[in-house]
Structures are given as structure tokens and as C-alpha cells.
């Protein structure tokens, strides 16, 4: 589904990603762990198409198509979804209106008519119930005054509505208490199928207790320095990242 080869990316001439190789197949859950500043969030932004990063080398191929020339919205239409570490507040635009704009943009890109209002209400209702989101919450301004947990839950709600092929969850666990974490994890698990994939970016092993990864990668200083099974996450929890310096690999 996703093949990243020798990816280098920089911002303001500072190289952040220094040769990433990563392959994710349908049905898989991958986790990327690593210390702060290792480039994990940059990787997720580059896959989603954030323009301030320059891809200097390598390629990102999604379902056989090279992504580097595509706008963020075009990547979204192809089925890539990024759950943000810091979701942005948009005052005056309700969660519902925002979702309506997003759903219809996807449909338009796929040559479909706008979704009918009652169909949309049904979809939004169903997904919000799955994530235990209160109805009142949906008419509030997007992310404005939301708690950390509410913001993250809202990200997963958007993901549930848009049903992406590849969901990248960037530090979705940060700022969540254990109950919120369980709700979010439950939502992610419910959305897993044999056809879609999840890439978890996380600093802590905690989330992986609830969303079991198939593959765990360790990223240090812009490179993936170790790849293993889910037991690698436990090892990291115990030993930290110190023992994994790039030059040792």
C-alpha cells in the first residue's frame, strides 16, 4: 500500500529525514517510536503533503502512485488521513459543517454527487456514537475550547467518518487520560479491516497496549534504526532509546 524509499526531507535547508525506508501492506498496523526530535512528526507531515517541507530525495508511493507532486487534498482523496498531534482551532465553523465540507470534497473528487442531508446525519450520528461523542459537541466550533482529549477524540471521529485506507496517527495518545485513550483505541480498532492500514507515531509504549502493532520501527535522528515485532516496544519501554544510536545499526 505505502512504499517509502530513501526519503530525505528538509525544512529551511535543515535536513530532518535522512533516508527513510518503510513499507506498509494492507491490514497492517505499524508503529514508529523514537525520542523527541527524531523526525517522527515530520515523516507524517511529509506523507500527508505539508508544503513547507522539501522532499530532496527518494519517493513515496501510495497504491502504485508517486505522491510527491500531489496536493494535501489530493492525497486525502486517495485515502490518506493524518490525525494531528495539535489539531487546529477553527472558530465559527462547527464540527458538523466541517465534516460536511470534507465528506463532499471527497465525493466530488471521486465524481460523486454531494451526500444527501439525511444520509450525512445518519453517518455522523453513527460514528459519533461509536466514539461516545455527545451530540452537543458536534455543533460546537471545531476544536475551539476543546480539551486535549476532546481534540484527539474528534480527530478519530473524523477518521471514522472519512474511512481512509491509510490512517497516520501522530501522537494521538499524548494528552489523553487512560479512559480517553481506551475510547480512542477502541475506535481505531473498530475501523481496522484487512484492506486498510494504520501508522502509529508515538513516544510511549502505552498506546500499543490497546492498539496492537504488527511491526514496530524505531526512529532516531531522521532514520529508522531498528525494526521488529511488538515485543520491541516493550524493550524500548524498559531500556529507553539510548542504546539505539544511528551509528550502531
Amino acid at each position: 500500500m505505502l512504499k517509502i524509499k530513501n526519503l530525505h526531507a528538509s525544512i529551511d535547508d535543515k535536513e530532518i529525514l535522512k533516508g527513510i525506508n518503510l513499507e506498509i501492506n494492507p491490514g497492517e498496523v505499524h508503529a514508529i517510536m523514537g525520542p523527541n526530535g527524531s523526525g517522527k512528526s515530520t515523516l507524517s507531515s511529509v506523507i500527508a503533503g505539508k508544503e513547507e517541507f522539501d522532499m530532496t530525495q527518494g519517493e513515496i508511493v501510495f497504491e502504485g502512485e508517486e505522491l510527491s507532486e500531489l496536493d494535501p487534498e489530493e492525497r486525502a482523496h486517495k485515502g490518506i488521513f493524518l490525525s494531528f498531534q495539535y489539531p487546529i482551532e477553527i472558530p465559527g465553523v462547527s464540527v458538523t459543517n466541517f465534516m460536511k465540507a470534507a465528506i463532499n470534497a471527497h465525493r466530488k473528487a471521486n465524481g460523486q454527487e454531494d451526500m444527501r442531508a439525511n444520509e450525512m446525519l445518519k453517518l455522523i450520528k453513527e460514528k459519533s456514537e461509536m466514539l461516545e461523542i455527545d451530540r452537543k459537541f458536534l455543533s460546537r466550533s471545531l476544536n475551539e475550547g476543546f480539551s486535549g482529549g476532546e481534540k484527539k477524540r474528534n480527530e478519530i471521529f473524523q477518521m471514522a467518518v472519512l474511512e481512509p485506507k491509510l490512517a497516520i496517527l501522530d501522537e494521538t495518545d499524548s494528552g489523553l487520560d487512560i479512559d480517553a485513550l481506551k475510547v480512542v483505541a477502541k475506535g481505531v480498532n473498530k475501523l481496522r479491516t484487512k484492506d486498510n492500514a494504520v501508522l502509529l507515531i508515538t513516544h510511549y509504549q502505552r498506546l500499543l497496549n490497546y492498539i496492537q502493532p504488527d511491526v514496530v520501527h524505531v526512529m532516531v535522528d531522521g532514520k529508522i534504526v531498528k525494526t521488529g515485532g511488538k515485543e520491541l516496544a516493550l524493550e524500548l519501554e524498559e531500556k529507553g532509546y539510548e542504546w539505539l544510536k544511528p551509528e550502531q545499526v
Binding site: 500527508a48 496536493d71 487534498e73 488521513f81 494531528f84 477553527i90 465559527g92 470534507a102 470534497a105 473528487a109
Partner: peptide, 24 residues
């Protein structure tokens, strides 16, 4: 970028942001 990553085209995303800007 946040809005565009949800599939909302650039022009429409700009419109929503201006709306949010004026709204308060």
C-alpha cells in the same frame, strides 16, 4: 494544511479560515 489534509480544496479551505477569522 489541517483543512486540506481532510480533503478540502485550497480555495474552500481559505474561505473557511477567513470565515473563522472574521467570526469572533
Amino acid at each position: 494544511f489541517y483543512l486540506r489534509s481532510r480533503g478540502i480544496p485550497k480555495r474552500e479551505a481559505q474561505g473557511l479560515m477567513m470565515y473563522a477569522f472574521a467570526n469572533n
